[in-house]
Every structure is written in C-alpha cells, then in structure tokens.
C-alpha cells in the first residue's frame, strides 16, 4: 500500500493490516512513532548508539509479537512497554553488576525535600544555544535513577496520561504519581543550580 493511503489510517487499522502480513502498514507505524521512541530510549540509556539499538530491537520485537497485541490498549502504549524493557535490558548489560528495574525501592531519605530554593533568571533558556540547552536538560535527566526517567519522559514530555504510563511501565497509579513527583522535584533542583539568578549568590556572603 502506498504511503498516501496508509497515512490516513488509524493505528488499529494499520495493526490489522500488518497482522495480515502487510509490512508496509507496519512501516507506517514505525514512521509514526520512531521519533518518540528514540527520544524515550535516548533519555533512558543515554548513549546514542545504545538508543538506536533499543529502537530497532523494539520495533522488531513489536513486529514479531504483533499477534499477541490484544488491542485493548493503544498500540503506542504497548510499543512503549516493549521499548522500555529493551532499554532496561540494555542498561543491565552495561552495568552488569547492578540490577536496574522500574520497581527498585525508592529511598525515602531527605533528598526528596527541596534544598535549593532560588528564583531563576527570567529566561534562562535564552542564554544558551539549543545544543547547550539540550545537553543541560539531557544531563539532568541522566542524573535521575532510571525508574524516574521513564516516568517523567512519558508523562511530562511525551504527554501520556497517568493511566497510560502505569500501563506502559506495568506500575500502579500511586507508584507513577510518587515517581513523577520525585522526578519533577529532582529536575527542578538540578536546573535551579544552573539557572538561578546570579546576583542572589551575593547574599550568601553577607
């Protein structure tokens, strides 16, 4: 089928065609979601080459497991679940001594409480080039434990609902909510260290 024809179909129709053996229909699903899946992978595994492997393996696995897709959730949510598992496997291989899991117990120490309380420059993003800003933001995400990265990315960057995120990550809704809050507060903390209004430091010495 030509792109012009597949382009207007909804995901489920494409899934049906792909299940019936139409690889072009699956190709349209790849085109639709590869950028979002790449962003997710890139932010979980950090290394660009690893992220590429994750994306490729996720789509291959999705294609081979397509018959097991029950269609009671969105295709994208199902795909994210596969991609996140691929990404975590990749991380495990990189840090073979350390287990990486979305279920890691959360430390309940003081670190969740905001420490850095300072107003920001009025438009901090305008003081950096797009490349510098991206590095700052990616680095901040990279400093989060993997469990927080996926939750933050899916909820706040990719725009999935709490319910969809819970389904994609196979976690409970309260677990998603608590991880999201901690992720947001940790990122705020990191970015405040970089973006806070410079003059305010002076008061520390008075």
């Amino acid at each position: 089928m030509h792109q012009a024809e597949t382009g207007s179909l909804d995901d489920l129709a494409l899934v049906h065609q792909a299940k019936a053996g139409d690889i072009g229909a699956f190709g349209e699903l790849v085109s639709r979601y590869e950028t979002r899946i790449y962003r997710l992978a890139r932010n979980i595994v950090a290394l660009p080459q690893d992220a590429e492997d994750v994306v490729q393996n996720a789509f291959l696995k999705a294609y081979s497991k397509l018959d097991s897709f029950q269609e009671n959730s969105k295709f994208y949510t199902w795909l994210v679940r596969i991609a996140v598992n691929e990404a975590l496997m990749k991380l495990r291989r990189r840090k073979s001594s350390k287990t990486v899991s979305l279920d890691e117990p959360i430390d309940t120490g003081q670190d969740e409480l905001p420490r850095e309380i300072a107003v920001w420059e009025s438009t901090p993003e305008s003081q950096y080039s797009q490349t510098e800003l991206r590095e700052i933001l990616d680095k901040a995400i990279d400093d989060l434990p993997p469990i927080y990265r996926a939750v933050f990315l899916l909820r706040d960057v990719d725009g999935l609902s709490t319910e969809e995120t819970a389904e994609a990550l196979d976690l409970s809704i309260p677990a998603i909510k608590s991880r999201l809050l901690r992720a947001r507060l940790k990122l705020r903390e990191t970015l405040t260290g970089i973006f806070k209004r410079k003059g305010d430091d002076i008061f520390a010495y008075l």
Binding site: T35, R36, Y38, R39, R42, W120, P124, E125, Q130, L133, R134, L137, F152, D156, V157, R184, L187, R188, L191, F195
Partner: peptide, 12 residues
Amino acid sequence: KTLQIYKGMEPQ
C-alpha cells in the same frame, strides 16, 4: 518552569 522548558524542547 522546569516542566515548560522540557515540554518546549524539540525532539532529538
């Protein structure tokens, strides 16, 4: 602002 800045980023 943290949320806004992340939402405003162009995807890689």
